[in-house]
């Protein structure tokens, strides 16, 4: 009986490299679009959370608490299996973008809120006193300062988002984990399949994570 990492299994994998490449590309696309959505939602809901208007604050809390306190898998299942019952059929790729986007948007909202709240109130007031609108003040004065302390946790969110796209494998998501899974469940060559898949995720996440570490150290030095 050949071991789980027998040479011919690796050869088979190399032969079928395009399967993994396709999944890898899908994972990158999914991550990029998901991250864009997450950033948009995160900035919007994060700013709602810094507002003095009670309704806005409430909207922020409902979104953040609801999403952060339910598992991503259930949210994906809801989008994939639940929505069709309401007559809404979404392509699985869209389910993926929405799923990780909305999920990580909730975490990013907290990062943005904390970042904006770390900027002294006087900054917004100085901007107002010079004739800036709320959005003008946010874009030119407050967010650039919030960015400094938000970058490391934001990068961590990006890393988690990339890893979490693998949850899509549970609904035949067409991304890296799904392809690795279906390829190896056909031929039972799980060993090489998961090792290579893991390395591919690592190749995306590690550079980001080390970037975050470097930023963090820089901030520590400068503050």
């Amino acid at each position: 009986m050949p071991g789980p990492f027998a040479g011919f299994k690796w050869l088979a994998l190399i032969n079928d490299w395009s399967v993994f490449a396709e999944g890898f590309v899908q994972t990158i696309l999914l991550s990029a679009l998901g991250l864009t959505l997450a950033l948009g939602l995160g900035i919007f809901f994060g700013l709602l959370g810094t507002s003095h208007v009670k309704l806005f604050k409430l909207l922020n809390r409902v979104y953040v608490e609801f999403i952060q306190n339910t598992p991503l898998v259930i949210q994906i299942f809801f989008l994939y299996h639940g929505l069709p019952h309401l007559g809404i059929m979404l392509p699985v790729f869209v389910v993926g973008v929405l799923g990780v986007g909305v999920y990580h948007g909730a975490y990013i909202a907290e990062v943005i809120r904390a970042g904006v709240e770390s900027v002294p109130r006087g900054q917004l007031e100085a901007a107002y006193s010079q004739g800036f609108s709320y959005w003008g003040a946010m874009i030119h004065i407050v967010l650039p300062q919030a960015k400094r302390i938000s970058y490391p946790p934001l990068t961590n969110q990006a890393v988690n988002l990339i890893k979490n796209t693998s949850v899509l494998a549970m609904v035949a998501g067409g991304e890296l984990m799904y392809h690795a899974d279906s390829w190896s469940s056909n031929n039972l060559y799980y060993g090489p399949s998961y090792v290579v898949t893991g390395l591919l995720y690592l190749s995306l996440c590690f550079p980001l994570a080390s970037f975050a570490k470097r930023m963090e150290r820089k901030l520590e030095v400068s503050s």
């Binding site: 002294p120 006087g122 900054q123 007031e125 100085a126 006193s129």
Partner: peptide, 12 residues
Amino acid sequence: AMVFQQFNLYPH
């Protein structure tokens, strides 16, 4: 224009 006690210059 307003000048504040804490200056409130834009540090960035």
